[in-house]
Design a protein around this nucleic acid. Structure first.
Lengths: 337, 337
DNA sequence: GGACCGGTTTGCATCGTTGTAGAATTTCGG
DNA sequence: CCGAAATTCTACAACGATGCAAACCGGTCC
């Protein structure tokens, strides 16, 4: 069907290996020959069969990216950034959705599908420290996530605890004292929920504000609806609060919506701060003060780290952890003062 | 490095072809042999090399999905649905971003990268009727889009004009008469912008409401910022209006935000209706009335259509167009009455 | 007892490419 | 104008799988 090297070779009157040499910019090809071959390539519309190339060369120029769900804006935007960065390096990206499910994450790590890729960038949610062994794999693997386990592979992550602490201190500095938290998730051993909660508690402790468990609301998937549900739950508890820290923007927006329905003014009655700096955080009513965890940097660095691993020869370097810098983006939902 | 058929065969004491037979569920394999082989497979942790398989069999069990940007929630959610549906069929999905750029769309159609896939689902934005030839390709191709050109390939799309007309009539029925439109884009020959504008005009005409060009605001990329910018432009024009029809939810949300900043009450002063029914439409303040173009159905049908094309043998069936049913989702930004 | 017959297993060619090694050709100093 | 050293090109063997067809096996039939 499609033209092959041999078809081109026949038309150009050279051996098929010469065509291969032209395509691969092998230096010792006479200009006249090269031109002849290129004309034949153009005439037949020849395109190399990348499967055959991969089989022979062992490189696929494809990577896999696994995120929980594209439905979550945070991961959609992150995936977009990774794909764009990969495109710049001439790489193709296979996107997998794990649903944040531990079993699916583990299954993916063992999947034969990975034989079609040079490596994997994984944003794990469900896995825990007990699964560390599953991460000790033969192929290049970079964890792009918010978790800071002790893991036997490269890891690009954000300063969860510090950022959460800074966010909480930001609220404290603006005079809030009853700060609710949305997104706690005890099923998660040491993921972002735990780390952010730790930052929150550190900030409280540093300012002698007592920790009150009735201000902490659980949410697992961190969807908008989870934020809304969590806020309903908080309102039902009927405890006073003057600020809310959503562990991601999506939940913060869902929560803010419910708050306003309930007649609470944001930020006058309740200040709201999120985490992620999604595009939409700038456009909500009121616009959402949030933490930018350094997403663009995370995406690019994850890719670069993976590429370095792929290019690596000889003895494996020890795993590295890269940390992004965060910033607090001040907007209306939580003014500085 | 990784185990191959031959390694397994040696361990099991059979020919490598028998191992292949076991893997492919070839029926005439003795139970004892099968078990022997399976034990060897397990012991070595053998995983088939999918590149080699694809080279030989011609099937990759991978499809490509090209959307403008994952940054746009509509496409992110759509991509998520396609990937999930593909996963159910055991397919891997390569995601490409075109930026809605004509040249990149055309380049993708000619890309050798497609040789790694069985087919392509493309959401074109930049291409026009003059590019129809580029769509007459040798590989299975399904257009998943909002455009209704006369195109030489399968096409899964929505009832743009009817839906836009219905949205406009919904606003008219609620008593609005000065209905602004955001998202017109003259650079686009017959894409969703044009079709939706047509529906808008049909509705106006049917109700004897004059068409007023000063109520039509242009926007190209349909991002949130474009909606915001468009609304600023509209406000600057200082023409009266009592409703806004955003050609997608993202712009409608951006516009609504600006409206409210400008002191207009939604829906009292201005009703707002969008198009797409994004997840977030349910959580804005006020929640956004919008058109659900049948996204889930679109995603699944695009995949099914592509799979049918891939499975097709013999003479090519003529291209088909599949149309999704839409519904209007009533929310707060534009109550029915 | 040999032909015949399922069911079972195997050998070989092949997919389209790249790597290696060597053959053919050109270049050039002497 | 010869011989050596480049340069240019080609032949052949992989990569790891599947498809095809032939070989094998034990049992049945005549």
């Amino acid at each position: 069907m499609a033209a092959t090297l041999r078809d081109v070779a026949k038309l150009a009157g050279v051996s098929f290996k010469t065509v291969s040499n032209v395509i691969n910019d092998y230096p010792h090809v006479r200009a006249a020959t090269r031109e002849k071959v290129e004309r034949a390539i153009a005439e037949l519309g020849y395109k190399p069969n990348l499967n055959a190339r991969s089989l022979r060369s062992g490189r696929t120029d494809t990577i896999a990216l696994a995120v929980p769900e594209l439905n979550l804006s945070y991961f959609a935007e992150l995936a977009g950034m990774v794909i764009a960065a990969a495109e710049e390096s001439g790489l193709t990206v296979v996107v997998e959705q794990t649903g944040g499910d531990r079993d699916r994450e583990l299954a993916l790590l063992r999947s034969p599908r990975l034989s079609m890729t040079d490596g994997l960038i994984l944003s794990p949610l469900g896995m825990g420290q007990e699964d560390a062994d599953a991460l000790d794999v033969l192929f290049p693997l970079v964890l792009l996530g918010e978790r800071t386990f002790d893991w036997p592979c490269d890891h690009v992550t954000m300063r969860n605890t510090e950022a959460a602490r800074a966010a909480t201190e930001y609220l404290l500095a603006s005079g809030r004292r009853r700060i609710a938290v949305i997104g706690e998730y005890e099923g998660e051993v040491m993921g972002s929920a735990r780390l952010r909660l730790r930052g929150y508690r550190e900030a409280l402790a540093a300012h002698d504000v007592p920790y009150d468990a009735s201000l902490v609301v659980r949410a697992t998937l961190w969807h908008r609806a989870d934020g809304a549900r969590a806020m309903h739950e908080l309102l039902d508890r009927d405890v006073p609060f003057d600020a809310v820290f959503g562990f991601n923007d999506t939940m913060a927006l869902g929560a803010m919506r419910v708050l306003q329905e309930a007649g609470r003014r944001v930020p006058e009655d309740v200040a709201v701060i999120g985490f992620d700096d999604l595009d939409e955080a700038a456009y909500s009513i009121p616009s959402l003060t949030t933490v930018d965890p350094g997403r663009e940097w995370l995406a690019r660095t994850a890719l670069e780290t993976l590429l370095a691993r792929i290019a690596e020869e000889g003895p494996k370097q020890p795993p590295q952890t890269e940390l992004a810098d965060f910033t607090i983006v001040e907007r209306e939902s939580a003014p500085r003062n």
